[in-house]
């Protein structure tokens, strides 16, 4: 500051005074600004999920009682999860569809675990606007493709829970999960879905 001032020449004294004052005022106002911004961080971050909600990120589901052709609804992160034990016909139907015909091309094998192609585990949340599709319960409308059918806006999913007709943009989401044993599935394991 001092060296700058002496380089200025004529109006040195006044110049230094003005600049020092400006500097202090700018510093004071900046500190106030930093303070306000720092305070908004906790005010905003408090709206994130609290620790007890994050701790519920994993659930273990016993699938031993799901017969071939049946499905159950369970809950993970307060959202419905569909677990379906596919019949060989359903697997065949899913594999018979050419990928080119799909809006969101994925194979059934890519949506299940190796050696467990009959276990289709997806979120029960329509990718259009978040309704719960029909098709899990006995006798529910499974739509024209034999998978799931969303009654809100008519999205139809096939036996691999892939979107076929209707407004939904993508297939039903497959969450992160792992088989703890042949009869026990842990949903949410291995990080974020």
């Amino acid at each position: 500051m001092a060296t700058q001032a002496s380089a200025e020449g004529t109006d040195r004294a006044a110049g230094t005074e003005v600049r020092r004052r400006d500097f202090l005022n700018v510093a004071a106002v900046s500190f106030a600004g930093i303070g306000v911004v720092a305070v908004t961080i906790p005010l905003i971050s408090q709206m994130n999920p609290p620790a007890d909600v994050l701790a519920l990120a994993e659930v273990e589901v016993d699938i031993s009682k799901i017969q071939t052709g049946q499905a159950i609804k369970t809950v993970w992160r307060k959202q419905p999860v569909f677990i379906r034990n596919l019949t060989p016909q359903e697997i065949q139907a899913a594999n018979a569809v050419p990928l080119g015909e799909l809006r969101d091309p994925e194979t059934l094998a890519g949506r299940t675990k190796p050696g467990k192609a009959n276990w289709l585990i997806t979120l029960g949340v329509c990718t259009h606007l978040g309704c719960v599709p029909l098709g899990v319960g006995e006798g529910e409308n499974r739509g024209p493709f034999g998978g799931y059918f969303c009654p809100c806006h008519g999205s139809a999913y096939d036996t691999a829970a892939r979107i076929r007709t209707g407004p939904a943009p993508t297939n039903l989401v497959v969450p992160e999960y792992e088989f703890v044993s042949d009869t026990l599935v842990r949903i949410g394991a291995g990080g974020t879905a």
């Binding site: 020092r20 004052r21 202090l24 005022n25 510093a27 004071a28 500190f31 106030a32």
Partner: peptide, 9 residues
């Protein structure tokens, strides 16, 4: 800093 700014003003 705010005190110094106050003194200056």
């Amino acid at each position: 800093i705010a005190y110094l700014a106050y003194r200056n003003i």
